[in-house]
Design a protein around this nucleic acid. Sequence first.
DNA 1: CTGAAAGCGCTAACAG
DNA 2: CTGTTAGCGCTTTCAG
Lengths: 341, 341
Amino acid sequence: MNIRHIAKQAGVSVATVSRVLNHPENVARKTRERIEKIIEETEYTPNWFARGLNFNKTGTIGLMIPHILNPVYMEIAKGVEDVAHQKGYIALMCNEENDGKKGKSYLEQLLKRRVDGIVFICSSLEERDFDLLEEQNIPIVLIGEHKNTTGQHVVSVDCQQAAKKAVKHLLDNGYEQIGMLYGTEPKVENEYKVAGYQKTLKKMGLPIRKEFLREVDNSIEGGYLGAKKLVELKEPPQAIFTTSDYIAFGAMDAIKDKSLRIPEDVAVVGFDNIRMSNLVEPKLTTIEVPLHKMGVYGARLLFDIIEGEEEAEENPRTILLQTKLKVRKSCGHKERIGEMF
Amino acid sequence: MNIRHIAKQAGVSVATVSRVLNHPENVARKTRERIEKIIEETEYTPNWFARGLNFNKTGTIGLMIPHILNPVYMEIAKGVEDVAHQKGYIALMCNEENDGKKGKSYLEQLLKRRVDGIVFICSSLEERDFDLLEEQNIPIVLIGEHKNTTGQHVVSVDCQQAAKKAVKHLLDNGYEQIGMLYGTEPKVENEYKVAGYQKTLKKMGLPIRKEFLREVDNSIEGGYLGAKKLVELKEPPQAIFTTSDYIAFGAMDAIKDKSLRIPEDVAVVGFDNIRMSNLVEPKLTTIEVPLHKMGVYGARLLFDIIEGEEEAEENPRTILLQTKLKVRKSCGHKERIGEMF
DNA sequence: CTGAAAGCGCTAACAG
DNA sequence: CTGTTAGCGCTTTCAG
């Protein structure tokens, strides 16, 4: 079933059918309606490829996700998807799985498929990969903090500042022996979080103990293993700051396994404020990150460029969203206001 | 940059370049290598659309997901994605969001884009939607239990039997007043689970109390609200069976909010065994479902058909995987063996 | 307002 | 082994 069938059936040329499809205003009402009816009846859909061959627009954007089973990334992804779907676009979700090779391979696929643009969520791809995209003149937007983002469109939160807030809160509550578990991924963001942790301690004149700072896999398991090491130290920390709620969940599990109480023996602070963080016990104090919003803003930015807003294209925009400390029980807040949240 | 540029640069015809791309064995080694080098240097990639126009194969499969933020579905999805990526295919993930309209709209997109096949995860689409696909002769595989699956390829677990196992376990532990919260979605599966619950009670000669059976949104919030109603009854149930871990989490939260103890005052059993289910407190007794495996099997089945295994195409296969009762603390197992798991 | 015809970039049958 | 050429299905000039 192709455009010629329709044309023949309507007794017109293919050009006219094509016009009905693309510029209906240029077709006489009567002819148009006749053709539209036939299209309706036969459930004809123009061939996607033939169309793309002419237009070179695909109505598709790429969406690179570090790990598809991590709710943090999926919430951002959903923000992107929401906007894309509303705009009639489809988002091709690519699961990098923290694997450079897989990421690269997906990127190639996206280029091959001529996507109209790409959103990268906390990507581990390197600068020169992005250059490839620049060459092909395909617009991209970065969500999450990255290295060397000059000239790029970015949506993120200030991780270093957020980390400072978290650590400061622990200090304010009387904890001085503060350990930290930071995830291997996303690399750049976690570097900033570590910097925030260290700077805050330094500013208070507290020593930075090397054995208190551990890199772990960004997962529940990673948090479990890391926290286990921390609590088994001769002088274990009184509090643990983590770079993600998942790590915090694992840490809490390890602490409980040691028959220690949270927060009485060890306080825990997470990062992200995913839905589960107030369902664990005790409810987790954490940094609230506007994940969904980041996705929405990122997607909007991308579409601004795709839809040819010169302005957007030329002036790389950086959108910085706010984080908020969400105080719950796990940090042992003095006033014990946990249940309010 | 197109095939003609390459041809000219190499001093051959476009046909030869095309051959290098598609049937390299039919090209003289010397010519081939020369052309390959030029392709390499110029970073030429064949136009995706032109290619599709000839082949009518897209290297893309559709993947319909009821809700992208639900880890249950995402784990299945990951199984599909794993297989697809390994096969060099890309999976177009479509977030139905329990919204028939959105699902329909995505389905149209998939057809327009001429995907080579579609995997439906617990889809809410109706039979006549599938007929549309049959007409277009596009292979599909269903994951999860569906209505009227005659003639379809299906991968699922026996939900009714699993529910029976769960309820029986509660009965074995001395609970007779058992309530149930079942999610609105996925519809068919939950109907089976309800049937399992009712049959088990009936078989034991226990009354089925209408006020003990509540339909709720399949989410943490839904579970919270539903459980609240249950525990506020004059004669509240001693145990609650839920159709998903998410509902169970919400239920546990509601029970705790009432200052009731789990499992002493109310026992809870979930369904799915998602990663978080042994991080809540108490750890959740639940039905283990091989989610990832379901995705993998579903995808394999689809590719068998796509790759033209006549046999697969003709004889609709139904793969039934096993569930397992995962006993933890929340069900108040007599021997208190929770920590073993 | 409509039709004829020239591409879009690629593949494959056919001829050499 | 290689080149010529006719499509694939659609859009869009250019004439009328």
